[in-house]
Nucleic acid binder design. Structure first.
Lengths: 186, 186
DNA sequence: ACCTCATAATAGATCGGTCTACATATTAAA
DNA sequence: TTTAATATGTAGACCGATCTATTATGAGGT
C-alpha cells in the first residue's frame, strides 16, 4: 500500500471513529463518513472491501488501542491502581466535556447497538473490553491484590457506567462522584 | 381515548420497547415497529403526532418505570442496600440471558446514541437515570448511610457498566464478578 | 352526525452497496 | 531510456432497499 493510500485509509478511519463516538454505528452513515473525510465512495470500498462493518470494526479496534495506550501511559506516572482509576476518570471526563459530551467510550455505543445482531462486531467489542480487563487485572495482580480478576472487571464496569451517566446527564458529576468512591473498592 | 385506541397505543409502545432494547433508537425502525405490533403506519402518527421521537421517548420512560417498579418490589423483600444491589444484578442478568443477550438496560443504548444529537431524548434519559439515582439515594439515606448521593450514583454506574460488559461479552460473568465485589462498596 | 381511530397508498429523503471510468504509480520489456 | 503492461487508488454516477413522514379515505362507536 502506497503512502497516498495509507493516508486515505486513515482519513476514513478518523472520520468513522469521530462519528461513531458521537452516535454509534448508525450515527456513522457512509455519506457522513465520505463527507467528513473528503474521500469518494469508491475509495472506501477499495480500502474496506467488507463495507461498513469492516470499517467500523477496524475503527472500534483502533479507538480501543488508543484508549489502551493512554491508560498505559497514565499507569507509569501513578503509584497504585486506585490513583490510576481516578486519573483515567479525569482523563475521560476532560475528553468528554471538551467534545461537548460526544466522545465517551469508543466501544460502548457500538456494543449496545450491535452485540445482539452482528457476531463480528460483537466479537470486536468483546475483544477490546477483554484487553482492557487484562491490563487492569495484570496491574492489580502486580500490586499483589487478591481477587484481581473480579476487581478489574468491577473497575472497568464502574468507569463505563460513569461515562454512560455523564453522557446522559451531560455533566461531569457522575464521574466526580464515582472518583470519590472508587477508592473504597481497592 | 377509547379502549381500542389505548390497546393500539400500548401495542406500539410494547413493540418499540422490545426493538429499542435489542438495537437502540436506530434498531427500532418504524417498519419493524408496525410489523411487530400489527398496527398500520397511520395509527402510529395518530397516537404519536410527534413521530418516532415522541414514541421512543415514551417507550424509554415506560421502560424506566417498569425497572423502577421491579426494583422497588425487590427493595421491600431485602434487608439492606447491598443485598438489593445483588438482587437487582441477578434480576437483570436473568432477563438479559433469557432474552439471548438482547434485553439490557432500556435506556442506555438510546442515551449513548442520541444524547449528543437530540435534546428531548437526552432529557428523557437523564430524567430516568435521575429517578433511579433518587430511589437508591433515599434507600441509602434511610439506612443511615453517609455520602448517600455519591454511593447511589456509584452503584447505578456499576450496574449499568456490568450490564454493558455482559452484553458485549454475551456472558453473565461481568454481572457475577461485580455482584461479588459490590458488597465492599457499601 | 360526530369524533375517534384504522388503513393503505405514497412521497421524498437517505441508506449501504455496486459499477464503470479514469488517474497515477510501479514494474517489465525493448 | 523509452515504451508497454500492470497494479494501485481515485472518483462519482447509479441502484434497489429502507427510512420517516404525510395524506386521503372510511369504518365504528357514542
Amino acid at each position: 500500500m502506497g503512502q497516498k493510500g495509507e493516508e486515505t485509509r486513515n482519513r476514513l478511519l478518523d472520520a468513522t471513529q469521530e462519528l461513531i463516538e458521537g452516535g454509534g454505528y448508525s450515527g456513522a452513515g457512509l455519506n457522513q463518513v465520505i463527507a467528513a473525510s473528503g474521500t469518494p465512495r469508491g475509495s472506501l470500498y477499495f480500502h474496506f472491501p467488507g463495507g461498513k462493518d469492516q470499517m467500523v470494526a477496524e475503527s472500534v479496534r483502533r479507538g480501543g488501542r488508543e484508549i489502551g495506550r493512554a491508560v498505559e501511559e497514565l499507569a507509569e506516572a501513578v503509584p497504585d491502581t486506585a490513583s490510576l482509576a481516578v486519573a483515567v476518570l479525569t482523563l475521560l471526563g476532560d475528553r468528554l466535556e471538551a467534545s461537548g459530551w460526544r466522545k465517551g467510550c469508543p466501544v460502548a455505543t457500538v456494543a449496545l447497538e450491535m452485540a445482539a445482531t452482528s457476531d463480528p462486531l460483537q466479537e470486536v467489542c468483546s475483544e477490546v473490553y477483554g484487553s482492557w480487563e487484562g491490563m487492569l487485572r495484570d496491574r492489580l495482580a502486580a500490586d499483589g491484590h487478591p481477587e484481581a480478576g473480579d476487581v478489574a472487571v468491577t473497575v472497568l464496569a464502574l468507569i463505563e457506567g460513569a461515562l454512560l451517566l455523564a453522557r446522559a446527564h451531560r455533566s461531569r458529576e457522575p464521574l466526580d462522584r464515582v472518583a470519590r468512591r472508587i477508592v473504597t473498592l481497592l
